[in-house]
């Protein structure tokens, strides 16, 4: 469903991403790994429309999306989280989930001000969807706290829930396990698998936690210094000499 072809991104003299290609099929979890500064987040930023790539193509469901404005890409069903969590911190947890559903509640101003039955019905649906996902990620009791006051792990889960209420087709997770303790990482592991199995969402994920990556990924792409190094199933990657060299060389 997603195809990235020879993607390049240059910042002045720095070629942060150089001819990277990858593809994601429906019902698949694909990981992008690589040492710090390899250009993984930059690939995400190009895919989600934050950067306009300097070269290459990005196809989503057969249509070219490179260079499209970020909010339009998100509306196509390509939604992401951030390496450094970005919540609306002075809004409550539920409100964070309601903001994300603005398109489900796309009624005109007047019907909202007058609270027409049609509006109420849609509003109730978004509340129910928010409640469902809060329950799913275990934040039901926090519903009316300010999002900024949550613990770090909870913030991470809220960010994923906030993506899920938009009913995305493809979810991009940038280091979702960063800063989580082992127990939380295990829950995350299960959550991501369930997103694929139960909600039919494809996932692209950037992650440094190798056991998580090897556990849940269907395929892995390795990037090193902006260039693609290897790609394949977890087993293939584990045995790939170049990858071993790159990681050992780094360590």
């Amino acid at each position: 469903m997603l195809e990235v072809q020879n993607l390049s991104m240059r910042f002045g003299g720095l070629l942060a991403v150089d001819q990277v290609s990858l593809d994601v099929q429906e019902h698949e979890i694909v990981a992008i790994i690589g040492p710090n500064g390899a250009g993984k987040t930059t690939v995400f930023n190009c895919m989600s429309g934050f950067y306009k790539p300097t070269g290459g193509k990005i196809l989503f469901e057969g249509k070219e999306i490179q260079g499209k404005p970020d909010y339009k890409i998100s509306r196509l069903g390509l939604v992401r989280t951030f390496q450094h969590v970005r919540l609306f911190s002075r809004m409550t947890v539920v409100e964070n989930l309601l903001v994300a559903q603005h398109r489900h509640l796309n009624t005109n101003l007047l019907s909202g001000i007058l609270k027409t039955p049609n509006y109420r019905e849609k509003e109730q649906k978004s509340l129910d969807r928010a409640a469902y996902w809060l329950d799913r990620v275990g934040l039901m009791d926090m519903a009316n706290r300010d999002a900024g006051n949550l613990a770090y792990g909870q913030q991470r889960r809220l960010e994923i829930a906030r993506c899920m209420v938009t009913e995305p087709k493809l979810l991009m997770l940038d280091e979702p396990a960063a800063g989580l303790n082992p127990a939380e990482t295990k829950d995350l592991n299960q959550l991501i698998i369930s997103l694929k199995e139960d909600y039919n969402v494809s996932v692209v994920l950037i992650e440094h936690d190798m056991s998580l990556v090897m556990d849940i990924s269907d395929r892995i792409n390795v990037i090193n210094q902006g260039r693609p190094l290897a790609s394949g199933t977890p087993d293939e990657i584990r045995r790939n000499d170049d990858v071993i060299k790159a990681y050992l060389g780094e360590a």
Binding site: S48, F50, P69, D70, Y71, K72, S74, R75, V79, R80, F82, R86, L87, F88, S89, R90, M91, E95, L98, V99, A100, Q101, H102, R103, L105, N106, L109, G112, I113, R162, C163, T166
Partner: peptide, 23 residues
């Protein structure tokens, strides 16, 4: 209403708001 929340969301974090499809 959604507009009101969108105002606040954009004030809180513009990048996150855009990533959720708010123009």
């Amino acid at each position: 209403m959604p507009v009101g929340r969108a105002w606040e969301a954009l004030r809180e974090d513009e990048i996150a708001a855009k990533s959720l499809g708010l123009s």
